[in-house]
């Protein structure tokens, strides 16, 4: 047996896994080769040290902590089960609410697609307040129309424009659509 073959048998030799003829061969090589004999001694020292390592045991509170973990796990499981039960018991209600929300959102989207300008108007200029103020018989005093080509009106904030528009001189009982369109166009140009 040479040193290379010996190194292959080393683990089995140390673990008593070799059959008698192989074991004799290994021991015979060890007697002839002090290097390999030294390797065996070193390895035996290492294995001895590993076997002598003190055994680490679980602490006294180990089982109590484990039972606590199991308890927490069971509680979480129960909560998730309760939630699931609640959800499945009220699934019809949740579906109905979801459907209503879907209808409202869809209606808004469709409405906006038919009234793209309304979506772009400033908050205060949305159709509802403007239309109501124009269509109603409000008691606001009549003023001169702001359409003055020589002296254009000063630049104002959208809110101010809205207010000025709300206070425009428009006959109470006649709703002039062309006038409104002109005003909106003018506001957009000023912007």
């Amino acid at each position: 047996m040479d040193c290379y073959s010996f190194s292959k048998y080393l683990t089995d030799y140390l673990d008593n896994q070799l059959k008698l003829p192989q074991r004799r061969e290994v021991e015979s090589h060890m007697r002839e080769c002090p290097v390999c004999q030294g390797k065996v001694e070193d390895m035996k020292n290492l294995l001895n040290a590993l076997h002598m390592l003190q055994k680490v045991s679980a602490s006294d509170s180990f089982e109590a902590e484990l039972l606590e973990k199991i308890h927490i796990y069971q509680n979480n499981l129960e909560h998730s089960h309760t939630f699931r039960t609640f959800f499945f018991n009220h699934i019809r209600t949740f579906s109905a609410v979801a459907a209503v929300i879907l209808v409202i959102v869809s209606t808004l989207v469709i409405w906006q697609s038919y009234h793209p300008r309304a979506g772009n108007l400033p908050a205060g200029m949305n159709s509802a307040p403007v239309m109501s103020s124009m269509g109603s018989s409000s008691s606001s005093p009549r003023q001169e129309p702001a359409t003055n080509p020589v002296n254009p009106p000063p630049k104002t904030t959208p809110m101010a424009l809205t207010d000025s528009l709300n206070n425009e001189m428009v006959p109470d009982d006649t709703f002039n659509l062309d006038f409104l369109k002109n005003r909106i166009q003018l506001v957009n140009e000023q912007r």
């Binding site: 390592l53 055994k55 680490v56 045991s57 679980a58 602490s59 180990f62 089982e63 902590e65």
Partner: peptide, 20 residues
């Protein structure tokens, strides 16, 4: 198994608290 496993995992991770 608690002691056997604690010893095994302790040698693996090097910390008793983590092993437990």
């Amino acid at each position: 198994y608690k002691d056997r496993l604690t010893n095994f995992v302790f040698r693996f991770v090097g910390s008793r608290e983590m092993a437990e």
